[in-house]
Amino acid sequence: MLDDQTSKQTFTRVLARRRFADILPKLVLAPSFAITLVFVYGFILFTGALSLTGSKLLPDLTKWVGLTNYERLFDHPNWWISLGNLAIFTCLYITICSVLGLALAILLDQKIRGEGVLRPIYLYPMALSFIVTGVAWKWFLDPGIGLEHVMKLWGFESFSFRWIKDSQFAIYTIVIAAIWQSSGFVMAMFLAGLRGVDNEIIKAAQIDGASNWTLYRRIIIPMMTPVFLSAFVVLAHLAIKSYDLVVAMTDGGPGTATWTPALFMQKFTFGRNEMGMGSASAIIMLMMVAAVIVPYLYSELAKKKSS
């Protein structure tokens, strides 16, 4: 019958629509996933493959050289300078940012009048580009016009501060600028942590006669361990990627004194046409980031599952 025919057609149409509705969410997610696969994972593999080739100016996947690039990399003095600088930078940057951030957060948490004014002042550098930060600090630390010059004008004739021109100390000027940029953010993280501490705990400790010092040292600061961990991960990750600030302040100089792995990668790949070695250095950088991030993400996910 005709009626039966139409109802059958409607039925298949409904079925088709439902099937389409089933795959629609996947279709929506597909482009982003495909992009991630190609642009992140595919590209990592591509760079990994390049690091095993003798590519110079252009990618060349026909000249396989095994691990030669990695051997040359770890034989190269500039790579060791970069690693050394990264170690200095990372240690000082993380330690000072954490200590300063925590100290500021604790002080700000004492019912400070004007907290609403102070907090944005501590935090605004985070909104700036590292290039802008670099320009400001480069000229402020420049002996000719900056701090040293100012101190001399104020009568301190023997005052000398020329770290930025000194290959032994230049890396520390980059540390100063980086701390200026990031410590306010660490402060904000700790402040959020402190505001989350249960007031009852504080009161109970005070009834037990604990001084403020003991209260913070024995009770509150140990409770901040998760914040320390988050701050560590964020800062370590920023440190390994540090590139812009170095370019703006010293561009690696004086000489090669302030090279970092990120700068090494850029200079070797595009400056010296050593694409194979550049790729090898990028792979090492990825491994360093992964060594910090993967255990962290893993533990965070495990924590979520158990709670």
Partner: peptide, 28 residues
């Protein structure tokens, strides 16, 4: 609209937030 494997897809996308971009410069 979770489906089988959607959590893995998310984890893979999440990991991409952390890569040092030097690793994708040449292929890009």
């Amino acid at each position: 609209w979770r489906f089988r494997g959607s959590e893995i897809i998310f984890a893979m996308m999440l990991l991409s937030c952390f890569i040092p971009f030097q690793i994708v410069i040449i292929p890009s």
